[in-house]
Amino acid sequence: MHPKVIFFDLGGVVCRFHRERRLAALGEACGVTPEQVESELYASGLISRWDLGLDSSSEIHRTIQKELGFPGNIRALQEIWCRAFDPDPEVLMLVDSVRPLRTALLTDNDPLLLDALPDLLPQVASRFDALLFSCRLGSTKPEPTVFTQAVDIMSAAPGEAVFIDDRADNVAAARELGIAAIHFRDASALGADLAALLPR
């Protein structure tokens, strides 16, 4: 195939995602347990709401101040938020290797992370032509609208796109729309998959 754009998932592909780091750091800052943080943010559905873009970064900050007693400013919260992400240097090298094809992040994440990424994880944000977050798209994977909006934004057709994700249901959803999708296992396997897929 001759793709125009390659979409990479963030947590689980470009970065290893460690939710426990965020929970521990936020719990320490607020004087509560990580389990309390998880209950207030994840079990309550707030994270899902924020991933859909239903609150701004400042609104997220105010909610965490109110619900957990977070004492810091929004920058301090962004720093804690980003601790969950550990960039994978081997995957980042693969992102560089597919140039001159266009690349984009396609991730289910919130405005707090989107606003923070260029400053706090510049080695990730600078690698991509577009940062396509569910909070901007208004829906999360594996909803078909996520993929159709993403290819439209990148001025491509489904058959001109490649999508990489660590979740099988997201990969299946992309394939149903005619997007060539790769189920991520590790950087080495991804390198082989990309080499087999892209023209030499």
Rank of each mutant, 00 (worst) to 15 (best):
residue 127 R to P: 09
residue 141 K to V: 02
residue 149 Q to S: 11
residue 121 L to D: 11
residue 120 L to K: 09
residue 151 V to Y: 10
residue 135 C to K: 03
residue 152 D to Q: 10
residue 122 P to Q: 13
residue 123 Q to F: 01
residue 171 V to K: 04
residue 157 A to V: 10
residue 154 M to W: 03
residue 119 D to Y: 02
residue 136 R to G: 09
residue 122 P to G: 12
residue 163 F to K: 05
residue 130 A to I: 01
residue 165 D to E: 07
residue 159 G to N: 11
residue 135 C to Y: 11
residue 157 A to C: 03
residue 125 A to F: 11
residue 167 R to C: 04
residue 141 K to D: 00
residue 171 V to G: 01
residue 118 P to R: 10
residue 132 L to D: 01
residue 139 S to G: 07
residue 118 P to S: 06
residue 158 P to D: 04
residue 126 S to I: 01
residue 148 T to I: 07
residue 139 S to D: 15
residue 124 V to Y: 02
residue 116 A to V: 06
residue 154 M to Y: 02
residue 136 R to P: 00
residue 134 S to C: 14
residue 164 I to Q: 08
residue 124 V to S: 00
residue 119 D to T: 14
residue 115 D to Y: 06
residue 147 F to T: 06
residue 135 C to Q: 03
residue 144 P to D: 08
residue 129 D to S: 12
residue 133 F to Y: 15
residue 170 N to H: 14
residue 163 F to L: 11
residue 121 L to H: 15
residue 142 P to T: 07
residue 134 S to P: 12
residue 153 I to K: 03
residue 143 E to C: 13
residue 148 T to V: 08
residue 138 G to C: 05
residue 121 L to F: 08
residue 125 A to L: 08
residue 130 A to S: 10
residue 136 R to S: 03
residue 151 V to G: 09
residue 144 P to K: 08
residue 164 I to G: 08
residue 150 A to I: 05
residue 118 P to T: 10
residue 154 M to Q: 04
residue 164 I to A: 07
residue 126 S to N: 13
residue 131 L to A: 05
residue 121 L to W: 12
residue 118 P to D: 06
residue 126 S to R: 15
residue 137 L to K: 02
residue 153 I to P: 01
residue 144 P to W: 04
residue 130 A to D: 03
residue 147 F to W: 07
residue 148 T to S: 13
residue 133 F to T: 09
residue 149 Q to V: 02
residue 141 K to S: 01
residue 169 D to V: 14
residue 160 E to D: 15
residue 127 R to Q: 14
residue 131 L to P: 10
residue 122 P to C: 13
residue 147 F to C: 07
residue 122 P to E: 13
residue 123 Q to P: 03
residue 147 F to E: 06
residue 135 C to V: 03
residue 132 L to W: 02
residue 121 L to N: 11
residue 121 L to P: 10
residue 151 V to I: 15
residue 154 M to V: 04
residue 149 Q to F: 01
residue 170 N to T: 05
residue 164 I to S: 06
residue 164 I to R: 11
residue 149 Q to G: 01
residue 132 L to C: 06
residue 121 L to Y: 11
residue 134 S to Y: 14
residue 162 V to D: 07
residue 154 M to S: 02
residue 128 F to L: 10
residue 128 F to P: 07
residue 154 M to H: 04
residue 165 D to H: 05
residue 161 A to T: 01
residue 167 R to D: 15
residue 155 S to L: 12
residue 115 D to H: 11
residue 157 A to K: 14
residue 152 D to I: 00
residue 118 P to I: 13
residue 125 A to R: 06
residue 121 L to V: 08
residue 138 G to S: 06
residue 161 A to G: 01
residue 146 V to C: 12
residue 156 A to V: 02
residue 141 K to R: 11
residue 120 L to W: 14
residue 168 A to K: 09
